[in-house]
Simulated assay, not measured.
Amino acid sequence: MQSTAPYRDLFYTSQDGLRLFAKDFGERTSKQVPAICLPGLTRNSKDFEALASHLSATRRVLCPDLRGRGRSQYCESWSDYTPQNEMLDVLDLMGAAGIHQAAFIGTSRGGIVTMLLAAQRPNAVRGAVLNDIGPEVSIDGLKRIAGYAGAMEAPATWTEAAFKLRMMNERDFPTLTSDDWYEQARRTFAEEGGVPKIDYDAKIGTALRKGLEAANGALPDMWPQFKALGHAPALVIRGENSDILSAETMQRMEKQHPKITGVTVKDRGHVPFLDEAEALTAIDTFFATL
C-alpha cells in the first residue's frame, strides 16, 4: 500500500533546543480526532506514510521523526535518547500543532512513549494503538535489536540494502516478495548521492545497550503506565512471529484493560507494517469508536 496523500513539513523546537521534524497530513480543520503516529527505536515517519495516507482522508495525522531520526536534529549525548525525553518532544509537537488531544499509534518504542504520555498527561490521550509493544518486553528480542542498532554499516547499493534486510528478517516475514524488501529498504535507509545512508544517530544504539547493561537482565515493566491508558479505547496489534511482545503479555493486556481489542497479524514479526488487511480493519474499527 503506497502513500499518495500530500503532507506539510512541520518543524518545531524541543524544550532542550533541538530542531525537530514531523509530516502533517490531512485537513487541520477536521472535526475528527487527530492521530499522532510514533515510530520505533531507529525508525521514522516513513513507516507511517501508507497508514497516514489512509487515515488523513478523514482526519489530521501527524508523523514525527523523533529526535535523532530522519530529518530531526541529533543529540550531542547518547544519554539524551530516552523515552521520557521523546515523550516531552511529543508534547512540544502537540503545542506547535495546536492539538490538545489525539489518538496515538505507537510502534514499539513509540508505544512506550504513548504509555508514558498516558501516565503523565492522560487527558492528552483520546485513544491508543500499540503496535507490537506492551508493558513487558521480551529480553531476547531487545538483545537482538541491540546487536545491530547503531552498529550496522550502510549498504553500498539499494539492491544490497534489500538483500541484507531480507537475510536478517525473512524468517519472521516469510510472505514478503523481492519488491516488498526493496520497498522496506527505502523506508529503512535515507538516500545520499543515490546510495543508501543510515537514517538515525548511531548513539541511539549506544543508549539501548547502556540501558540493557544497567538493567542487568531484569527489565522493568510498565504495567502502571499501561493502566494509565484505562480511560481510553485501545488496540494492541501483535506480529504472529514477534520476539518483543509475547502472546502471554498480550492476553494479560486484554484482561487488564476494560476497553482494549487485540489483533494478531499473520506472517509478521516485529513489527507489523500496519498496511495488512487485518491491521487496517482493526484500526478503522478503533477510530470509529472514538
Score class of each variant (00 low, 15 high):
128 A>C: 03
35 A>E: 05
37 C>M: 08
242 S>K: 08
75 C>L: 07
12 Y>P: 00
198 I>P: 07
238 R>I: 13
11 F>N: 15
20 L>A: 08
180 D>A: 10
138 S>L: 11
36 I>S: 09
189 F>N: 10
78 W>H: 12
81 Y>M: 09
64 P>G: 08
247 A>N: 14
62 L>P: 01
168 M>D: 13
111 G>T: 06
31 K>V: 09
256 Q>V: 15
119 A>M: 11
28 R>T: 04
192 E>Y: 00
111 G>I: 15
210 K>R: 15
158 W>L: 09
188 T>G: 09
104 F>P: 01
221 D>F: 08
57 A>M: 09
135 P>Y: 06
21 F>G: 02
38 L>Q: 05
178 S>Y: 15
288 A>H: 06
117 L>W: 03
240 E>A: 13
22 A>H: 04
194 G>W: 05
45 S>W: 00
25 F>Y: 14
284 D>E: 12
154 A>D: 01
234 A>C: 15
14 S>M: 06
285 T>P: 04
80 D>I: 04
250 M>G: 14
271 V>R: 10
63 C>K: 00
161 A>V: 05
56 S>W: 03
22 A>M: 02
275 D>F: 13
30 S>D: 07
65 D>V: 00
162 A>K: 01
39 P>W: 04
62 L>V: 00
257 H>A: 04
258 P>A: 09
206 T>Y: 03
290 L>F: 11
117 L>P: 03
122 P>M: 08
255 K>T: 15
87 M>E: 13
251 Q>Y: 13
242 S>I: 02
198 I>R: 12
237 I>Q: 02
60 R>I: 04
247 A>S: 11
240 E>G: 07
273 F>C: 13
270 H>M: 15
213 E>V: 13
267 D>H: 14
177 T>I: 11
285 T>S: 14
84 Q>C: 11
34 P>N: 01
94 M>S: 02
125 V>S: 06
89 D>F: 02
27 E>K: 12
266 K>N: 14
55 L>M: 05
147 G>S: 08
246 S>N: 10
269 G>D: 09
196 P>W: 04
262 G>T: 06
150 G>H: 09
142 L>Q: 09
246 S>T: 14
200 Y>Q: 11
21 F>R: 01
160 E>I: 06
20 L>F: 03
